[in-house]
Amino acid sequence: MIGIRDLDVSLTGSPVLHDITTTLPAGRLTALVGPNGAGKSTLLATLGRLVAPTRGEVELDGRPLLDYPDRELAQRLSVLRQDAPIGPRLTVEDLVSFGRYPHSRGRLTDLDHARVRHAIDRLDLRAFAGRYLDSLSGGQRQRALIAMVLAQDTDVILLDEPLNNLDLAHARRVMQIAREEADAGRTVVVVLHDLTVAAAYADHVVALKEGRLYAEGPSDEIMTPAVLSSLYDTPVSVATVENRRVVLTV
């Protein structure tokens, strides 16, 4: 469970998040939604201790994030930002292997290798394992980064718009994996733009608007025309197609 208390966050001096207090349920898939500039990515980065709050606190299982030793936290929580730049020229396998660093500090065991292979397979990357990242398409690179996070094997997985650059089939695959991870008892938090995707996969939704918590609750309660229309200040309708909710703008 991730607890967020009285959170204020500023980026380069200008305030981005104001006074956010909420709880993200353990073992569930939570979607972070909201208009552009609402502060979704900043909130996710703060949950992943990439950004330090100016006020308030984030707790993982009742213990403040800052109290965790770096290595222990990395074994329990992983975070993937949008367009994470990777400096050195690595192969896909190299990159995914780094996901095991918190566990084995760079000296990989057989178990580590097995985890790496498994993560590569789950993202359909076996054919690319030996390829260099800079020779891949944006979508393939994105999948390699997700595979690294999976190899890290943590209780909490935070993903910032993981569907960026992905084609239809792989976007679906990534959301399925996120779903599987949540079903296996992990806490998954995903920033999503596509509300239909959010409605289809998330158990819990947190909606932000202009840096403040706008609404939160089970997916069914938030993904309604009334809430979404006022969240985005634009008319939104929710239809049901083949037993699934589809979010439409007019």
């Binding site: 990439l50 770096d70 990395a74 994470a84 918190p102 996070v149």
Partner: peptide, 8 residues
């Protein structure tokens, strides 16, 4: 960010 994520 990747380094922090990996516990460094």
């Amino acid at each position: 960010e990747t380094a922090i994520n990996l516990g460094v």
